[in-house]
């Protein structure tokens, strides 16, 4: 399917989910689905760099929080509508991703991984010391009382995040099948060979970090409105970093389907576990699943399915 019709399908699925959501009309359902949709955006964004290019980003929480705090700053200064704040948050994170990549990507990949994790911790320190956005105490965001066309503000946020998820998945699929995606795959498989064959590796890696950063930023931008109170500990929560790695790994990293499956499965499971068990236990669950999957099924659920299909296909060939 060409990119544009796929975008149509993707948006139509988001609209169908939205339709089903308002048919039920439960505020908690909006709240939970928003989280799952947010993880679709984060996991897809992580996968553009991690899955397609093979560079691990531990600092998702940092990018997410920068997106969120960009909204806080805009809210306190000019108070733009949410739909304008989202691309602004995305752009700020895109610049951050570019700078990060420029400083570390010329070295071995592992330095990038360590630097992203350290960056998240330092940005956390900066925000804690920045009293304009509330410092360690956090900041309250007052939601607009009503929005046009929507029954409530949570319903509106739910719709916005579904739209972003649909866009992110369509962008990831487009990247995967474009010249850019093939270049990134060449870098992942053998960076030196790719460089020798004339793939502009540094340039492509920088495009990937910038795009990935942008998508993480747009996932974070509506966050202050979603929780209506942001503090550094919440926005920089390491859980975002772990989840955005665990979801593509569990789903499968080689295509856009993997992060989507992983986010839907793990995101839903976490929502259920948070309600029924406790939020600390559900984080433990994510960690254990991550370790089990990287050890036992490194190609994720998609890889397992392909294996099963490959085996049954081979059997058919033998029989017939």
């Amino acid at each position: 399917m060409a990119p544009l019709p796929f975008l149509g399908v993707s948006l139509a699925s988001a609209a169908a989910v939205y339709g089903a959501g308002i048919a039920v009309g439960n505020e908690y359902l909006y709240f939970a689905s928003y989280t799952v949709a947010q993880y679709i955006v984060l996991a897809t964004a992580w996968n553009i760099l991690g899955g397609y290019t093979g560079y691990v980003n531990f600092g998702t929480a940092g990018f997410f929080a920068v997106g969120a705090y960009t909204s806080v700053v805009l809210h306190k200064t000019v108070n733009l509508p949410l739909l304008i704040m989202i691309p602004v948050g995305g752009l700020v994170c895109a610049v951050l991703g570019l700078a990060m990549g420029y400083l570390t990507l010329r070295l071995r990949g592992v330095f990038f991984a360590i630097a992203t994790l350290a960056m998240a911790i330092v940005l956390h320190t900066l925000v804690v010391n920045w009293s304009f956005v509330g410092g360690a105490r956090g900041a309250y965001i007052i939601r607009p009382r009503e929005v046009m066309f929507f029954a409530s503000y949570s319903e509106y946020l739910f719709a916005v995040m579904l739209l972003l998820a649909a866009l992110a998945v369509a962008i990831a699929r487009w990247v995967e099948r474009s010249r850019l995606g093939r270049g990134l795959a060449a870098i992942r498989d053998d960076e030196i060979a790719a460089e020798c064959s004339g793939v502009p590796t540094l340039k492509l890696k920088l495009v990937a970090t910038t795009l990935s950063g942008f998508l993480m930023g747009i996932a974070g931008a509506p966050f202050p409105y979603y929780v209506s109170y942001v503090d550094p500990a919440g926005a920089f929560n390491l859980a975002y970093g772990v989840n955005s790695i665990a979801m593509p790994l569990i789903g499968g990293m080689s295509s856009w389907v993997g992060p989507l499956i992983g986010a839907l499965l793990l995101g839903t499971l976490q929502q259920v576990a948070t309600v029924t068990i406790s939020s600390a236990a559900n984080l433990l669950l994510v960690g254990v699943l991550l370790v089990v999957f990287v050890t036992v099924a490194p190609n994720g659920i998609v890889g397992l399915l392909q294996k099963v299909r490959g085996q049954s296909g081979a059997r058919k060939k033998q029989n017939g």
């Binding site: 991690g50 093979g54 691990v56 531990f58 990949g109 592992v110 991984a113 390491l238 970093g241 772990v242 790695i245 665990a246 790994l249 600390a280 236990a281 984080l283 433990l284 994510v286 960690g287 254990v288 991550l290 370790v291 990287v294 050890t295 490194p298």
Partner: peptide, 30 residues
């Protein structure tokens, strides 16, 4: 056994230790 022998230490190995970090922290927290 899980990573180095199969030449997958770069990405999976990193994710593995990140998972261990998280499990250790949450377990101590509980």
């Amino acid at each position: 056994v899980a990573f180095e022998r199969r030449g997958r230490e770069a990405l999976s190995g990193l994710a593995f230790f990140f998972g261990i970090l998280f499990i250790g922290e949450v377990a101590l927290l509980l």
